[in-house]
């Protein structure tokens, strides 16, 4: 057996660093191949693994991250859902503050980082159903809106909550259509305080991307997606029902309540059925997006086809 000279032995720290080099080189090659397979325009969003168990409580699969981040209604950027991700990629979400006021005892302006520290994120896997008859299953992170409302102490006269999105024409290129910005939405106070109503800060364990409403958005899973206002800068407690963006556009088509309801038809889209993104076959749309057990009591005695 040949004796190995001690000078031929690679010192431990060197061979370890060589190994590290090989691993990182391999990773680089693999990631190049992966990203190379993505279509141009979206190299920065590889598909992430959905959080376990990979389904919502009904057993419906979580929608792929790439679809959630590349099929977005965000009209301040574009009317084309597939173009929003690219047009919003430089949107500035830091620094960011949210002003909470109106009929409250403790009006305050919160920094988004403070909010995130104060209210640790919880995961909520919700179905999102757009009024355009498509739907997704999204693993959100965020905190209940109720917690924020508690801090500002709403007065007894407060009956509704009014939300406003940022509108910054310098960052938001959609100037062609004469919409009345900013985007405004509203909830009844009891809806806003409901445990399902979420202020979301993340998806798939990552911070929200601009196209999904970064840095802070509302999620109300039993209502059509347009209620879930994005990139919120202002929250006011008010006495009168706020005039929301789509109701202002067309009050016959869109209502303030916007509860998901297969019995209330829309002139353009089937509200009795929907396409889950990633599936070919339509599914039946269910009352309150199958959150009926949780929310039916909010609407006792109300004619839902009248208050749509």
């Amino acid at each position: 057996m040949r004796k190995i000279k001690s000078s031929e032995i690679t010192p431990e720290h060197l061979y370890l660093s060589r190994r590290r080099f090989l691993i990182s080189a391999g990773a680089l090659v693999a990631s190049t191949m992966l990203f190379g397979a993505c279509r141009p325009g979206s190299p920065e969003t590889p598909d992430l693994q959905p959080p376990s168990p990979g389904t919502d409580e009904l057993g419906d699969k979580i929608t792929p991250y790439k679809d959630i981040t590349h099929y977005n209604n965000f009209y301040e950027f574009s009317l084309q859902k597939e173009d929003v991700a690219d047009l919003a990629k430089n949107f500035k979400t830091s620094p960011w503050t949210v002003t909470v006021g109106g009929l409250v005892r403790q009006p305050q302006t919160f920094d988004i980082d403070d909010l995130r520290r104060r209210f640790p994120a919880e995961e909520r896997i919700y179905r999102l159903r757009c009024v355009e008859a498509w739907s997704m299953v999204i693993p959100w992170e965020g905190f209940p809106l109720a917690k924020l409302l508690e801090m500002v102490e709403p007065k007894a006269e407060a009956k509704y909550v009014r939300f406003e999105s940022l509108y910054d024409p310098k960052q938001m290129p959609m100037r062609d259509i004469p919409f009345e910005w900013p985007y405004v939405e509203g909830l009844r106070l009891d809806e806003a305080r409901h445990n399902l109503t979420l202020l979301a800060t993340g998806i798939y364990g990552k911070s929200l991307l601009p196209q999904n409403g970064a840095p802070l958005r509302l999620v109300v899973p039993w209502k059509y997606g347009y209620k879930s206002i994005k990139s919120i800068v202002k929250i006011d407690l008010v006495a009168e029902m706020p005039l929301s963006f789509w109701v202002k556009q067309s009050a016959e088509e869109y209502g303030f309540y916007a509860n998901i309801n297969p019995e209330v038809p829309h002139p353009r889209w089937s509200q009795a059925s929907e396409r889950r993104i990633g599936e070919a076959k339509r599914r039946a749309t269910l009352l309150f997006n199958s959150y009926d057990k949780e929310v039916t009591n909010l609407y006792q005695g109300m004619d839902l086809s009248n208050f749509f």
Binding site: P265, P267, A272, S273, A280, R282
Partner: peptide, 20 residues
């Protein structure tokens, strides 16, 4: 065929409901 999967009940409902 593809969008409505030949679901005749659903098609009839939407044909009656939606002018377009």
């Amino acid at each position: 065929g593809i969008d409505y999967g030949f679901n005749l009940a659903l098609l009839r409902k939407d044909l009656a409901e939606k002018y377009f």
